[in-house]
Write a protein that binds this DNA or RNA. Structure first.
Lengths: 245, 245
DNA sequence: TATCTACATTTTACATGTAGATTTGCAAGC
DNA sequence: GCTTGCAAATCTACATGTAAAATGTAGATA
């Protein structure tokens, strides 16, 4: 029997924060559950996503599970190999670096746009997020830092008033989170990150598009450097996707 | 009965460059057929993608059709509304402009990377594509121009040696093509485009990353300008437009 | 021991069944 | 004419059935 980790999360949680009203679909809940399981590490990279096993475990039929698994594949959190099923995405150092490299120009530009034409209260909202982040940093709360970090970047992506850029950044977010899970935290990384976030907000408040882009790219470059340095020497996880993909 | 256009296209199109050999899946062929139908205009924006009707028309069961339709949704060529099915994506002027805006920094950066670290024969390959494009331009062959244009941009996206950027640009390509279908051709647009392409290639051959990025962004900005000018005042479809720009 | 083959098991990919929601057609009412 | 109010038809979302492929495993062979 395949090794499906606990997954005790009941699907019948009935939390429906959907934009449209109506009963939550089983597919959506399954996607959310699987995404959560992957990003939390309950389902590890390389692990097989067996449709029958997951259906059995979740107490639902195979149809919504299959759809959910395919949706995760489209999200980049899983990869498909023909006639051999779907496995959780494995990101090697090369992929991780590529993700960070891709993020730079895209999110840098998004930050410029947010500064130039974002909503008037953007600065305040970002301040609120950073206030929460400051608490997390002071408490050494790694999980809280990640949460507020994601909120910070999402807020900027949403504020750039370009649905396409927003969409692209969302499609990077999952793989980014997957990549970040694989790196060890460096001492002081939270403090540095918060400081860099503050510079971005300062430029946005000044409506300085160019400065905001520069600050964000500096932040992302620093993040990339912190990540690269942790998986740098003689990494365990070889690329792996060269043969399967 | 829903109005499904002809779709006489045989499912054996086999333009799917799959990494693994083996018998083509019905799903893959269906995705290809639907994508083709959407991009060629056989299935028009706003048209409903009825799973039973398509299954009947294609002579297959509903399962692979449903999967294919969901795949197109993930690609951005169709949109889903809860319990009300999937329709072909409608792109208004705002969305079209957003797509072009998003493309700038991303593909500009990809061009820089391609110039700095692309394969040695990249210049020659691009020359070959542009030679073909020159023929199309000389012949006034709009379809040939679009084909070589797509090949040109794809070649650069592939040459940047960053799978993530490549992936993001591919996910833009479909929506880009959909957007371009909606604009009328301006006189001289092919000639201008070819000339701009040549400048990009010149910079790439010189391994001038900064110049290549600048040239590509200039080309994309010009394209955007040509597109925007064709749909400028107020086009019919303004779905989901939230605010002024 | 290592390799090959035959068989059993599992899984994918596609086909089909169906309850309930949604849309449509159509006639009555204003 | 235009709405309103069903009833029929249709479709979505999920459940289940199944052939063929893939995988695992035991026994045979070298």
């Amino acid at each position: 029997m395949p090794d499906i980790t606990d997954m005790t999360t009941q699907l019948r949680t009935t939390d429906d924060p959907l934009p449209s009203i109506g009963p939550a679909r089983v597919v959506d809940e399954t996607v959310a559950a699987l995404r959560q399981a992957i990003l939390s590490g309950d389902l590890r990279p390389g692990q097989k996503l067996s449709v029958p096993a997951l259906a059995l475990r979740l107490g639902i039929s195979r149809s919504p599970v299959r759809e959910a698994v395919l949706a995760l594949t489209a999200e980049g959190l899983a990869v498909e190999s023909r006639r051999r099923g779907v496995v959780v995405t494995e990101l090697g150092p090369k992929e991780t670096d590529a993700i960070h490299e891709a993020r730079g120009p895209l999110e840098g530009f998004a930050t410029r746009l947010a500064a130039e034409r974002g909503p008037v209260d953007l600065g305040e909202r970002l301040d609120a997020i950073l206030a929460e982040q400051a608490e997390a940093v002071a408490a050494g709360d790694e999980d809280g830092y990640f949460r507020t970090n994601a909120a910070f970047h999402r807020a900027i992506a949403a504020a750039c008033d370009n649905a396409e850029i927003h969409r692209l950044l969302l499609s990077l977010e999952g793989r980014m989170a997957l990549a970040l899970r694989q790196v060890a935290a460096r001492p002081g990384h939270r403090e540095s990150g918060l400081e860099e976030h503050r510079k971005v907000v300062a430029a946005i408040k000044a409506r300085d598009g160019s400065g905001a882009e520069t600050a964000m790219r500096a932040h992302l470059a620093a993040t990339r450097q912190r990540v690269v340095s942790t998986l740098h020497p003689d990494d365990r996880m070889t690329v792996g996707s060269t043969s399967a993909m």
